[in-house]
């Protein structure tokens, strides 16, 4: 029983991480049709800069972590928005080329990060409480999972509120469904594009900082590691659906944890099989729109 609880909660924690990265991917694809391979790069740079600033302000404390997180979100948002504005926008409607540009950007940025920060992982300090565990019903659960879950829940809530209550949120929701009709109502969707990239970048940035807490280090490859899973989660949940991404994140991560424990470390394999299965049975994912 305690094992099951442990697996579920650690799965939720991992799922929280996946969601933070996948939320941006889902919205970006849903609204713009762009497969953003550079999303991992947003995550990584936010993690690096967030860590650099945080440790200089106050290393290993809650205050330092908060600063890291805020800086990470801002960096993520800015870098993402800049990417959209300078690169993606030039290739309006040419989805393959847009995806290719993000591939090139991912390639170049990982190399750049390795050049600046080196190829070895850099270990990060974190607040004392996060290194400890809490006992619930016999299961010893690492505390950082709670932080992850809490942050992901807050981000999910914030994005949903934004989508439901603001005008830009309304435009984005309509645009995900039918972009040309939004234009036919006299609305310039392109501004929403930058906004969506920024939101996705901010979430990814937070995810990056939290990933450095979860894994205990930052490295140039931090983003690529998570990106593949984020893609899988996005596709299973349905490209363009935020709630789909949330549900899929939880399902995939928990499945992964269980498979790792009960089926001898085959978590990765099981997730991949699940992806193939979903795509073949229900290609649009759990909650994706019908093409």
């Amino acid at each position: 029983m305690s094992t099951v609880l442990l697996l579920v909660i650690t799965g939720l924690g991992l799922g929280a991480l996946y969601f933070l990265v996948a939320s941006g991917l889902s919205l970006i694809y849903g609204l713009m049709g762009v497969l953003n391979f550079a999303h991992g790069a947003f995550l990584t740079i936010a993690a690096f800069i967030g860590w650099e600033v945080g440790r200089r302000v106050s290393d290993g404390t809650w205050w330092g972590l908060l600063v890291s997180a805020l800086v990470g979100m801002i960096v993520g948002a800015v870098v993402a928005a800049a990417t959209e504005y300078f690169l993606i926008r030039r290739l309006y409607e040419r989805h393959i080329e847009q995806a290719l540009i993000t591939v090139g950007l991912a390639l170049a940025s990982v190399a750049l990060f390795e050049g600046i920060w080196g190829t070895d992982p850099i270990y990060t300090a974190k607040p004392e409480w996060l290194t400890q565990t809490t006992e619930i019903l016999g299961a010893r659960i690492p505390n950082d999972r709670f932080l992850l879950i809490a942050c992901a829940a807050v981000v999910l809530g914030a994005i949903v509120l934004f989508l439901q209550r603001t005008r830009y949120g309304l435009i984005i929701r309509a645009g995900v469904e039918n972009r040309s009709m939004v234009t036919a109502l006299g609305i310039d969707v392109r501004r929403s594009f930058t906004l969506v990239f920024a939101i996705g970048g901010a979430a990814a940035g937070l995810g990056g900082v939290l990933a450095s807490v979860y894994y205990g280090y930052v490295s140039a490859h931090l983003g690529s590691l998570l990106l593949i899973f984020a893609f899988i989660v996005t596709v299973i949940g349905g490209l363009g659906s935020l709630t789909g991404a949330a549900i899929a994140s939880v399902l995939v991560a928990v499945l992964q944890q269980f498979a790792n424990f009960y089926l001898g470390g085959t978590g990765d394999l099981v997730v991949v099989i699940a992806l193939a299965a979903v795509l073949l049975i229900r290609p649009r994912g759990l909650m994706g729109k019908v093409a």
């Binding site: 929701r173 469904e177 039918n178 009709m181 036919a184 109502l185 006299g186 609305i187 310039d188 969707v189």
Partner: peptide, 24 residues
């Protein structure tokens, strides 16, 4: 002009097949 600019000048459009936003 781009489409949205034309519309902003005072053109309303009712498309074939309605195209209402079903999820809204």
């Amino acid at each position: 002009l781009p489409t949205h600019r034309i519309v902003q000048r005072g053109v309303g459009y009712v498309p074939e097949d309605r195209e209402v936003f079903g999820s809204l």
